[in-house]
Design a binder for these strands. Sequence first.
DNA 1: TAGACATTCAACCATTTGGTTGACGATCCC
DNA 2: GGGATCGTCAACCAAATGGTTGAATGTCTA
Lengths: 110, 110
Amino acid sequence: MANSLDTIFAALADPTRRAILSMLLEDDMAVTDVAEPFEISLAAISKHLMILTRAGLIAQEKRGRVKWCKLEPDAMRNASVWMQGFGQFEPVNLDAFERFLETELDSTPE
Amino acid sequence: MANSLDTIFAALADPTRRAILSMLLEDDMAVTDVAEPFEISLAAISKHLMILTRAGLIAQEKRGRVKWCKLEPDAMRNASVWMQGFGQFEPVNLDAFERFLETELDSTPE
DNA sequence: TAGACATTCAACCATTTGGTTGACGATCCC
DNA sequence: GGGATCGTCAACCAAATGGTTGAATGTCTA
């Protein structure tokens, strides 16, 4: 049920949720801290996080009264792989390939 | 306006629309032929095609009374590249990387 | 024990979405 | 010209979505 392309793509379709994912790229965060930069209510953020969780894009773990959110990249990779099936029509697709390599080399120093 | 991640991911979130894209992977098709395998009305299919077009995922061209639909892979690649930024958290991300290379090498014989 | 804090729940609202049906505008062909 | 075919438009409908507010739950701490 999680990881279905339906729920993954639907989750990614919202800019607030994509922004949350980008924030989690930096570090795991508590719900309140996730909500801080946005102008919508905490309850709304809570719903967004629920949708991301059901899609399998993040995982939430409660420690004490704080619920931590962390990225769960597997779901996104499933969707990414599905999409790559459509790249084969381009002459070469070098563009995406290069950027892929760049982020790969660029961001794994440790 | 087309090619925004919002509209692209929203378009991909519907199983009917993903099925249409897969069909177009085989060949360009007329609207009526796109609709044939589905059990919903032609008008509904027409709406789906409009959404895919606005997202930039397909292009439609009218020749005579027939409107041809063809895949437009650039939009999907934009989304794919965005998503690949999230792969870096995996230990290595070799899985997606390999498949990426495979489809790349596998499908560009000409 | 009493607040204060972190988060969700419940009820509600407006808008969007995916579907329907029927009428309509083009276009092809006899 | 007239009928069949291709596709969209318009009006409508039910359900889902993204937001709100206020109350409720659970946990930490003074």
